[in-house]
């Protein structure tokens, strides 16, 4: 399901760039919707401001719309439902599991909070260099540009992320480093769509923790009946799919 959403959004951008069907024009950095309003990547806009330029209201409003949207829904649904890199890192994860590759660095030794520092670092460097420091390397926009505008060199950074996740650090990019995900994690605590854990059905098999790309969010599994609250949860639904005991489901909630 989320693969379909990821692909559909990309296809809309391609349709616009190549065939002039202007539903979604641009890319994930900023998109023009139905030739009437803009949506912008909040982190890109924050970097622009950090670099010392106050952008036009179009992107400020665009970034605000995106922020409010994910704030209300669930922050990191961007990561697993829209972001194209998610497909890349999930592929790396699948291959790593299939081939039983042991990553160079153990996941437990690297803090999940690293991404917040990367987020800050990006802003500091933007201010020092006078241009958006993360967007120079951003694999998300690289991948999008590679596909929409056909600049193949962007694939190298995507390939780097793939190999990094495969050999160096499990869930390395999305789970530890990506500052865009960090932003959505921060605003992701309050969204209305959450995974709900029904403790009375749970058999403590812990399969959900194995498939979860952010296993720390599943801290209540087997302990209490509640929603998954942490902002790092991407609502990817992997835990729901793997659960044989009907103990996990999506739920609309304000808690």
């Amino acid at each position: 399901m989320r693969r379909i959403v990821q692909l559909a959004i990309m296809l809309l951008f391609i349709a616009s760039a190549s065939f002039g069907i202007k539903i979604l024009d641009g890319n994930l950095s900023t998109a023009e919707v139905l030739e009437s309003f803009y949506l912008s990547d909040p982190y890109s806009v924050i970097q622009i401001i950090a670099s010392g330029f106050i952008p036009a209201s179009s992107v400020l409003i665009g970034a605000a719309i995106v922020t409010v949207f994910y704030f209300l829904l669930r922050g990191r649904m961007f990561c697993s439902w829209v972001c194209p890199i998610n497909f890349v890192t999930d592929s790396a994860e699948w291959l790593r599991k299939t081939l039983h590759i042991k990553p160079l660095i153990s996941s437990e030794n690297v803090s999940r909070n690293l991404r917040y520092y990367v987020f800050l670092m990006g802003l500091v460097l933007s201010a020092i260099f006078g241009f958006a420091a993360f967007d120079v390397l951003n694999p998300i926009s690289m991948l999008y540009r590679a596909v929409i505008f056909g600049s193949l060199s962007g694939f190298f950074i995507v390939l780097f992320v793939f190999l990094f996740d495969l050999f160096v650090l499990k869930h390395g990019w999305c789970g530890h480093l990506c500052p865009v995900g960090a932003f959505y994690s921060v605003i992701g605590k309050w969204g209305i769509l959450k995974v709900f854990h029904n403790h009375s059905n749970c058999t403590d098999c812990m399969k959900c923790k194995v498939v979860c790309p952010e296993e720390q969010v599943l801290d209540i599994i087997g302990l209490e009946t509640d929603t998954i609250k942490m902002g790092a949860c991407t609502n990817c639904g992997a835990c729901i799919d793997i659960c044989d005991d009907d103990a996990l489901e999506f739920k609309i909630t304000i808690k």
């Binding site: 641009g26 890319n27 505008f149």
Partner: peptide
């Protein structure tokens, strides 16, 4: 140019 590289969000709308 100095401000352009700050401001451009790399969306490609001008290219399209």
């Amino acid at each position: 140019e100095k401000d352009f590289i700050k401001a451009c969000i790399k969306c490609g709308l001008c290219v399209n």
